[in-house]
Design a protein around this nucleic acid. Structure first.
Length: 273
DNA sequence: AAAGATGCCAACCGCAGAGTT
DNA sequence: CAACTCTGCGGTTGGCATCTT
């Protein structure tokens, strides 16, 4: 659905912000305990800017929790790892680096990190070795990347949920509306913890004896915890979603399957470069 | 010293999704 | 349910700073 840009009004100032404008904006937000509606803020605060420009200036520069200064090596490494999982989803990446903005990370990526990956012989988009005509590792890489992609899929969902919760913490307690939020909530609960323990145990048994696992799982308390966990997830979904569509159930089932296959030891070593 | 190239980053633009009327 | 508003996001750009020739 199309919509007119908010900056089409004549007479509104564009370009770099002055110290006076910054001060007006900060004072207004501090005095009113928040920005309220961005659209009406410029009029109320007495700024000749559009709301969008004010929001950008605040979120990228004036916010009190903004971290200034250069990125550390650890930060850069984390950004590269997260980019490998999330791609160009700068906001999701920024949510994992407190005090850093998506714009800042995007700029860092475009000016430094992208080039660094290219220098290392890696494709900055896929993080795979740049295609070479006779690279013997290509085949092995393709098969290993399948499992990595699977884990990345789950991690991506988790990060998105965390990003949402960090923006709107109230969602943690009520009105959870998306699959990722449901899963994060129950995943972090006591039930989720029990499930992880059980699944870890089952996995180790499976390594030792493939055939014994199913019988064991069907008879021990492990299966009960597992069933209880899955029931809990489904219940949260059905309780919270008044209009459950076919699509919703499909994605729920898919996520459940991913959940069951996700590594249980929180080992993120597969992210290492 | 001057001109052009390159790097960097704040800010803008337009799209999309969610919420509201 | 359509029309509209608000907000967030990612891509892109303008302009200043620095480097190179």
């Amino acid at each position: 659905m199309g919509r007119k840009p908010c900056c089409d009004k004549m007479g509104l100032k564009k370009g770099p912000w002055t110290a006076e404008e910054d001060e007006i904006l900060v004072n207004y937000i501090n005095k009113n305990g928040g920005h309220g509606s961005w659209r009406s803020l410029p009029n109320l605060a007495g700024l000749l800017r559009c709301g969008k420009s004010c929001r950008l200036r605040w979120t990228n520069y004036l916010r009190p929790d903004i971290k200034r200064g250069s990125f550390t090596l650890e930060d850069e490494k984390l950004i590269i790892q997260l980019h490998g999982i999330l791609g160009n989803r700068w906001a999701a990446i920024a949510s994992q680096l407190p005090g850093r903005t998506d714009n800042e990370i995007k700029n860092l990526w475009n000016t430094h990190l992208k080039k660094r990956l290219i220098c290392m012989g890696l494709d900055p988009q896929t993080h795979q070795p740049l295609a070479s005509p006779h690279n013997p590792n290509d085949k092995a890489h393709a098969s290993s990347s399948t499992s990595t992609r699977h884990m990345a899929q789950w991690e991506s969902a988790r990060l998105e949920a965390e990003a949402r919760l960090s923006r709107e913490p109230h969602l943690y307690y009520n009105n959870n509306k998306t699959d990722s939020d449901y899963f994060l909530r129950i995943w972090n609960s006591d039930l989720g913890e029990s499930f992880r323990d059980v699944h870890k145990l089952e996995s180790s048994i499976k390594c030792e004896s493939q055939s014994a696992t199913t019988d064991l799982a069907s008879l021990t308390p492990a299966s009960i915890v597992k069933e209880e966990f899955l029931w809990g997830v489904k219940k949260i979904v059905s309780d919270s979603s008044s209009s459950s569509s076919e699509l919703h159930h499909d994605s729920c089932d898919t996520s459940l399957q991913l959940l069951l296959d996700f590594p249980m030891n929180n080992d993120m070593s597969f992210l290492e470069l």
